[in-house]
């Protein structure tokens, strides 16, 4: 009895999942027609090694302005490594070595003239696990602004409110801005982290599996938020979840064993993949 019940629940779950998936996907196909804007990031013959492990091989990819680009692929395919290369966070791992170029609005990010501080001010990041500072919600969001020398209380107040509104969490936290961010739920923490990234008004937001540690309801909220944010920001999102890529993104890149196998409109990747491996992956045959 319990078995059949479970099965039923599971079926319902998948049915609902696909329903939501197709619904949003259709809406997305419509938005996918938007003309591609200026290129924001261009990787040119980019290679990356962790010591002897050739993790990224001859990557050539272009991400455009005001576009949501998804990066999908099985574990260990290099998708997280690549997104972390875009703001040079990957350099925190000491054994990393790179070759080739990544251009951010035409400038090579590995050039000596480009400091990581400058790059990361323009290219914000949201991480896999919600990682607020052990500070109040207000101080979390104001952190970036303070780091960049903004001290006036009045301006900070405005930045905090605008960013929290932008991350769709203002109404939930406006009465407890001075409480520790650790008191929030995981989904709320992640939206505070998004607000924190928005507070320095970046040009691009990188999201490294932003919902993988969250429950389905929080995931939906973050996905909605990503779509809203794409009006003002260029977004690159790494995801393990193919439905998520299909739901939220305009363009999708499929990474496999350190290579970009295919990069195209999301609808094309999911409906008419050109490569056999892409087809196998998006149809769930591996990964």
């Amino acid at each position: 009895m319990t078995d059949s019940q479970l099965k039923e629940d599971k079926n319902m779950g998948t049915e609902m999942g696909t329903e939501i998936g197709t619904e949003v996907k259709q809406a997305d196909n419509a938005s996918g027609i938007i003309e591609s804007g200026q290129p924001v990031f261009q990787a040119k013959d980019f290679n990356l090694w962790y010591a002897d492990n050739h993790a990224l091989q001859n990557i050539n990819l272009t991400f455009s302005e005001n576009e949501i680009s998804a990066i999908i692929g099985p574990s260990g395919c290099g998708k997280s490594t690549f997104i972390k290369a875009l703001n040079r966070m990957v350099e925190l791992v000491p054994i990393v070595r790179t070759e080739g170029h990544i251009l951010y609005r035409g400038d090579n990010i590995f050039d000596k003239k480009m400091t990581v501080e400058e790059l990361r001010t323009k290219v914000g990041m949201v991480f896999q696990n919600p990682n607020p500072f052990p500070k109040s919600i207000y101080d979390n969001v104001a952190y970036g602004a303070r780091v960049h020398g903004i001290k006036k209380k009045k301006i900070l107040d405005q930045i905090v409110e605008k960013s929290l509104r932008g991350a769709a969490i203002w109404d939930e936290v406006k009465d407890r801005l001075n409480q520790n961010a650790y008191g929030l739920s995981g989904g709320q923490q992640q939206r505070v982290c998004i607000a924190r990234a928005l507070a320095i008004e970046p040009d691009v937001i990188l999201m490294d599996e932003p919902t993988s540690a969250l429950d389905p309801i929080s995931t939906t909220k973050i996905e909605d938020l990503i779509q809203q944010l794409s009006k003002d920001y260029s977004i690159v999102v790494v995801t393990h979840n193919m439905q998520q890529a299909a739901r939220v993104s305009d363009k999708t890149a499929f990474f496999y064993q350190g290579y970009v196998v295919e990069h195209d409109d999301t609808s094309a990747i999911f409906e008419n993949p050109k490569d056999k491996r892409t087809e196998d992956y998006v149809s769930g045959r591996f990964g």
Binding site: L92, R120, N131, Y143, V147
Partner: peptide
């Protein structure tokens, strides 16, 4: 001090010293 909060700080363009003095030392 978890490396995730370090990453959050430097990921916003904070310098090493700002990260050390504002995040790591207080924690």
């Amino acid at each position: 001090v978890p490396s995730t909060v370090r990453e959050a700080s430097v990921g916003m363009g904070a310098t090493k010293w700002q990260t050390v003095s504002r995040i790591i030392l207080p924690a």
